[in-house]
Amino acid sequence: MIVTLTVNPSLDRTITLERALQPGEVQSALSSREDAAGKGINVARSIAAAGAATRAVLPLAIDDPYRAILRASALPVCEVPIVGHSRANITIADPAGITTKLNLPGPALSPSDARAIIAAVVEASAGASWLVLAGSLPPGVGDDFYVVVINAVRAAHGESSPLIAVDTSGVALRTVVEHGTPDLIKPNDEELAELVGIELADDGPIDAVIAVARQLVPARAASALVTLGSRGAVLVTGESALVGEAPRIRVASTVGAGDSSLAGYVLAHAQGLAPDDCVRSAIRYGAAAASLPGTQAPTPADLPAGDVFVTTHS
């Protein structure tokens, strides 16, 4: 069982244009779609599409329009009742795969909402192999919310606690690595650079990414999966650094690609695969998601064919 927490879910609306976005102009759209999303939901949908056991914990009001779209996905969920509707995120995609995102804030959570969510995560995590804490934090909870969740799960389950992966950014991620000691973090290269307070060139050497990650691993996080878009991904652990190259694909939308990469990684790890195969799985799932429109969860049939080259760096 792989459990996910999405404390700030979103209804993703994706609009595909017939040509590049022209700010200030009226343009025609080729298509649009809506997906029940939020990072943890995206991860859980990819895991479920692979036929693996998962459960997604999220706050959700009874009258939230998000509910109908979520139920259509047939995803096993644990809903924590709240007041207020999930946010809507708008993505504008052009034929070249360039995306523009507008992310809205979510509903404010009360202290009792936060306590109920934490209790639901603790209960759902019993016997799980992984717990994935993913996405931004909504108004009403502190920057240390994920740390509070981690401590509650580990206090409740002790040595049988699941491995914990965190995929967030900014102050929330900084607080996790300072106080939470997660088993895995999944930043992209920009989020990693922000986390340690330096700049990384977009096309800079991979060794620079590895060096930055090693400032955190293993002292503050047991491992880091750093996604690099079209350049692939890097897995840094206390023992090694593995670099995987991304396959060539036709990009439709990059929204949710990093979430699918994380899903691919934890799926492979939960199956007991070797670290290099976990990296291959992460890259295949991320590439598959980027080749699909909207915020779709890739299935095993969507994964790109061919090998993913993984090398060990010192």
Rank of each mutant, 00 (worst) to 15 (best):
R115G: 09
A114G: 13
L102P: 01
G84A: 10
L133W: 00
G135T: 02
G106F: 07
D144V: 04
V80T: 15
N103D: 03
T168S: 07
A61M: 10
D63Q: 09
S125G: 06
V148Q: 15
S46V: 15
P105N: 10
E178A: 15
D144A: 08
A68I: 13
A44G: 12
A155C: 01
L173N: 04
S169E: 12
R71T: 15
V166C: 03
R115W: 04
P81M: 15
L102M: 13
S86H: 03
G51A: 08
P105W: 11
R87L: 13
V177H: 07
Y66G: 00
R45H: 07
A116M: 11
E123N: 14
T100S: 13
I118M: 04
A88E: 12
H157L: 13
G84K: 06
I150S: 02
V121P: 05
N89V: 03
I82M: 09
D144E: 12
I90H: 08
P81I: 15
P139I: 10
V148D: 13
E123V: 14
A114S: 15
G142Y: 00
V57C: 15
S110M: 14
G170H: 05
A124V: 11
A119F: 01
S86G: 03
S46K: 00
R174N: 08
I117S: 07
V121M: 09
D63G: 10
S86C: 13
I69R: 10
E123R: 14
I41E: 02
A96S: 15
G106R: 08
P139A: 14
V132R: 01
I117E: 11
R55G: 07
R67N: 06
A172I: 05
I92A: 04
I150L: 04
E159P: 02
A116P: 07
I117P: 07
P59S: 09
N151V: 06
I90Y: 09
H179M: 04
R154A: 06
G97S: 08
G140I: 12
A50G: 15
N42S: 13
A48R: 06
E79D: 08
V177I: 02
A53G: 12
A36K: 00
G127W: 05
D143F: 01
P59C: 10
L102T: 14
V80Q: 10
D35H: 01
G170R: 04
A128G: 08
I98G: 09
S129F: 03
L133G: 00
D143C: 02
V122W: 12
A56C: 15
L104P: 02
T54S: 11
D143W: 00
F145P: 05
A165I: 01
T168H: 05
S129Q: 04
C78M: 12
L58K: 08
A116Q: 13
T54K: 05
V176Y: 07
G106M: 14
V121W: 11
G40K: 02
P76R: 07
G140Y: 02
I118G: 02
V83P: 01
V80F: 12
A74F: 06
L131D: 05
D167H: 00
A134E: 10
V147S: 03
P139L: 14
I150Y: 05
T91M: 01
A53Q: 13
G84M: 10
D63L: 12
V177C: 01
R115I: 11
V80R: 07
C78L: 13
P76S: 12
V149G: 04
D94C: 06
G51Q: 02
V149K: 04
W130I: 07
N42P: 07
P111M: 11
